[in-house]
Design a protein around this nucleic acid. Sequence first.
DNA 1: TCCTAAGCGAGACGGTACGTCTTGTCTTCCA
DNA 2: TGGAAGACAAGACGTACCGTCTCGCTTAGGA
Lengths: 189, 189, 189, 189
Amino acid sequence: MAEQDRRVRRTRRLLRDALFELIFEKGYDRVTVQDVLDRADVGRSTFYTHYRDKEALLLAAFDELSEDLRDEFGASAPGADPAAPAEAVFRFAYGRQPAFRALCGKRGGEVVQRHLRRLLAELLTAHLRPDAADPPVPAGLVAEFCTSATLGLLGWAIDNDFPHDAGWLAGTYRRLAEPGLTALLAEHA
Amino acid sequence: MAEQDRRVRRTRRLLRDALFELIFEKGYDRVTVQDVLDRADVGRSTFYTHYRDKEALLLAAFDELSEDLRDEFGASAPGADPAAPAEAVFRFAYGRQPAFRALCGKRGGEVVQRHLRRLLAELLTAHLRPDAADPPVPAGLVAEFCTSATLGLLGWAIDNDFPHDAGWLAGTYRRLAEPGLTALLAEHA
Amino acid sequence: MAEQDRRVRRTRRLLRDALFELIFEKGYDRVTVQDVLDRADVGRSTFYTHYRDKEALLLAAFDELSEDLRDEFGASAPGADPAAPAEAVFRFAYGRQPAFRALCGKRGGEVVQRHLRRLLAELLTAHLRPDAADPPVPAGLVAEFCTSATLGLLGWAIDNDFPHDAGWLAGTYRRLAEPGLTALLAEHA
Amino acid sequence: MAEQDRRVRRTRRLLRDALFELIFEKGYDRVTVQDVLDRADVGRSTFYTHYRDKEALLLAAFDELSEDLRDEFGASAPGADPAAPAEAVFRFAYGRQPAFRALCGKRGGEVVQRHLRRLLAELLTAHLRPDAADPPVPAGLVAEFCTSATLGLLGWAIDNDFPHDAGWLAGTYRRLAEPGLTALLAEHA
DNA sequence: TCCTAAGCGAGACGGTACGTCTTGTCTTCCA
DNA sequence: TGGAAGACAAGACGTACCGTCTCGCTTAGGA
């Protein structure tokens, strides 16, 4: 089966790379399955044996990313630093600019945004550990705030060609978002 | 011509209402022009005489909203309160829950989010008045932060059936976002 | 609605003619819906609003023919001449050589043969009037014999470019098939 | 190599039997190569090592039959009895009802009919020995008549579960077809 | 004993046609 | 004359089969 696997992996890689290139060129919505097929030099039926549709291919690529992100993020100690998750995301993104440009920039349609948002929200909710029974602000709302802020800054960075470095972006996040978060946590304790 | 105008307006209203209903039922992306036609009981060609496509109809509805929002927002003095724009948006949204539910909730696809984001960014950029030549954080990034935070909270409120009232949501925004913003402005001065 | 009808008829005629041409060129089985579309200069969806599939188009054409045949055949008195139905078919076919070439020749696949056979069998069964309770040979079998003989001769004529005329072919049919039939009917009476 | 041969034969038999079963269940046209593979428990590539396509498998089975038929038929003296070929075919078919049911009944598509017709036409043409230079009716047409009549009756018998026996069917053939044939031959002499 | 050639199952792959769906344009009819 | 009705071309979609192919496994029959 080793050979089969190798061929399968090769085909999937071809498809994924073709999709990325095309998203970057025309934007996800305007990319056609046939475009991907032509670019990857892969048959129509082959595509559909691997992925249910265009979105499934996108999500497969996204899942590879999120898997890695989850791994890296798992290392940081929870609770120590409210900005840690955002920083991890920024570092991760800066380290994989091509992928993020395709998936999360202006051209990487709503689908990815939605999934990325869900992923982030999940990571953040776990990190924030709402340990009080009746917090002054609902935990979901705080998580939503962090997620939105993180994604907002990340989107800005992507659309501005990843200026400076991940540390700088994290610093900005700290300046803007951390004061409010720490005040809230302090008050709550 | 008064009669003609009345009929035109009637047709447009029918179309807009049908679109809203359908967005709420199935989500913007899954709504078909034909769906709208059937629901509004309007002929295909009639639709296309009024709007270029489905998105144009959505944007027409959106523009009515944004026009009003722009008016209300114009009243507040710029610079006085960094959270003022967000508060204005929240009050506005709480006052028009059905429309916002359809346009900006989970079901109101990417298109609206994009336009709403652009509108907000524009209002906020004007409000923040970047009066320094070399700010520590780019003005666009700050605007992006505010926009994302505002939209994040708004989306959360929509998806949680507009809990409490607009003031409460604005208060939360102040707790979370304002400390960072004021610190930044102070440092900058 | 008159205009709509005219357009519809035009489109259907275009499709039918294109199909006939292509059957004659490549044989029914090798004709693709797309071939018909290209030849008729008609859109894919238009085709499918008119016909469920390629076979439906063929059958529509076939039905026009069979309708006419049924009309012509209805005129002849039943029972008078056992070869009358065959002669009617031959005359009919000789008068519409292009259509029969496409539909019933070697190139006009199994589908038409099947339907033509059913049509003939039906006409013949009605014509033969099996008025005895226990005939020496089942009526269905006699009808099958006549149908097969008629179609056999007709197929031969088509594949040999309609030699002589319909009367000659009917004469041959009489020489070959009628003696047996009349003997059977006589014995039976 | 004896073992190899045994395996090859086994595989081919499995495929042929599976095809027959499936033709009987769904009709030749609706049978898929994959259906045959699954039923015979044979790999895709194995199939294509043995047969070029589905039709080749069918024809291989058909050829076995026709070989035997040709042998049996070769025994009869040519010219003695115009109905002899038909009778031989009927006896042969009644002796192999399952195969004929699958191959030549309503479910055994056009392909087999075509080949069977060709085979019969060949046998009959040889049998009829057109010894005149200018016959009143073309020899090909007479052969076509005999072939069609024979196949017509055979098809009827198959679709009616082989009623009576081969002799009865041959008798019917004699009643219906022979008078015309003998008259023609007499006139011709 | 090994080993090597064949038959074979598994299934990835490119290709082609299919029938469905939605879009935006167009023409005609009606009030 | 504006709106309703709806035919139409365009073209992407996901499905179904096809015939080719590469790959390992097994199993004889000859070394």
